[in-house]
Design a protein around this nucleic acid. Structure first.
Lengths: 154, 154
DNA sequence: GATCATATCGCGAGGCGTCGCAATAGCGAC
DNA sequence: GTCGCTATTGCGACGCCTCGCGATATGATC
């Protein structure tokens, strides 16, 4: 086997936040295991939101020996590193936001079942209202707010 | 522990919304069963919010034969009658609001674990913002929004 | 390459919530 | 009071999520 190729720092490929997970883990005395490697592979495939069960299922496809508890624990770890962020769907089930970039909220229409996003500008109105009136700094992205969309409302 | 008391028909006691549940059920072709009677007893004991497990545990104390599925199904029914309303705590677990009167939201501080209410006036700001910007009629009471309270924030 | 401390894994159990099914029992009709 | 329709119950099984425990394997050190 030839030596593994070292990524040249001049490489033009966009640096992915997943690339240095191994390093970051080891820096904290944590370990880079096959199970975590698999999970990162799976996360690379996704964008936006994924449910925990979807992640577990996909990991199991790739590995077969993956167990749910391992995935949940690895996700907790990645959340501490800021690479994912968990929230709850309208029914309380867990959802993971991959590479959370901007604050946005989630809406679920109980009429038609579709989901909507609260864009950052609108979210800001809500966050500001609660901050000024209650001094509470809310994290709108953690839950899915239910309601009726324009189409189902009238 | 409150002792049992037979309700005198001549009693001028304020009519409780629970009093005519039996009638309302039968009016819809539904039935008034011992299990439902027990649940109503339990609900009479509470105000505000209760978790599903608390209700189930208390029903089991009173009856012993109560099973969770029966309680959940009865709660669904009462929700259709408008007597309770379910929501989700910060961790996604179910919570029941007893006799929901006014629209209010729920806040959970991830710092200290305390819970706060969003008063109707403040809730209105949020509801209006989403209504005017997205045409979405949200139900703020369905979920618990996480964040940091004034004390934990700074 | 061998050693060792310990982070991590897989397993099993448990609580929560949902659903389908066969048996039971309200309750309206007679 | 009895009958019969069918709403409801209890059970069992499942999926989701968490946790504790003993066994394993990472990776730092020599």
């Amino acid at each position: 086997m030839p030596h593994e190729q070292i990524e040249a720092s001049a490489g033009p490929a966009a640096a992915s936040p997943w690339d240095d997970v191994a390093v970051r883990l080891r820096a904290g005395g944590l370990r880079w295991t096959p199970q975590r490697r698999t999970l990162i592979e799976v996360l690379r495939e996704h964008e936006g939101h994924v449910t925990a069960s979807e992640l577990i299922a996909r990991c199991k496809e790739l590995d077969g020996t993956t167990t749910p508890s391992t995935v949940y624990r690895a996700l907790d770890l990645l959340e501490e590193l800021g690479l994912v962020k968990h929230g709850h769907g309208h029914d309380g089930r867990e959802e993971y936001h991959i590479l959370p970039q901007q604050v946005h909220g989630h809406l679920y229409c109980v009429g038609c079942g579709s989901t909507w996003e609260i864009r950052p500008e609108t979210a800001a109105v809500i966050v500001d209202a609660l901050a000024s009136q209650l001094g509470f700094a809310v994290d709108l992205s953690h839950v899915t707010i239910s309601g009726l969309c324009a189409g189902c409302h009238d």
